[in-house]
């Protein structure tokens, strides 16, 4: 029993923190190191994003993707127009945007991105 009491007393003695006059300076050093690590991480992520963006754009340009999208858009436009003409021959809404179907594809892509953002926010809220 005496042994147990002594061990408990020893634990209490260990729990008493000694006083350090430079406690505030120590805390500031730790905060400084945290800030440096955080800033470095942000820079790394930013640089990786920029490099990734540059590589992605260069790949798009190199693969002549704009021309391909235009070709696909033109084909899709014909199919859509034919389909709509069969359903409602008098409906000519598509003529409003027929000058450039790439706009429709870009808008669709933006809508998908927007949906992605919304979903991310919803998941975060949950």
């Amino acid at each position: 029993m005496a042994e147990l009491d002594f061990e408990r007393s020893l634990e209490r003695l260990f729990a008493e923190a000694p006083y350090f006059s430079d406690g505030e300076a120590f805390a500031q050093k730790v905060e400084g190191r945290l800030d440096r690590g955080w800033n470095m991480r942000r820079w790394l992520i930013g640089c990786a994003g920029v490099v990734g963006g540059v590589v992605g754009v260069s790949q798009l340009v190199m693969s002549n993707v704009v021309h391909r999208v235009e070709t696909v858009s033109a084909g899709s436009s014909r199919v859509l127009k034919a389909g709509i003409a069969q359903v409602r021959p008098s409906f000519d809404l598509l003529s409003l945007v027929q000058s450039d179907w790439a706009v429709v594809w870009v808008a669709s892509a933006l809508a998908v991105v927007a949906m992605g953002f919304v979903l991310t926010r919803v998941i975060e809220e949950i």
Partner: peptide, 16 residues
């Protein structure tokens, strides 16, 4: 990080 800094202020001496 400032919240963690407060934890360092409270327990830094004990750890050191």
């Amino acid at each position: 990080r400032r919240a963690f800094g407060e934890l360092v202020r409270r327990h830094g001496s004990a750890v050191r």
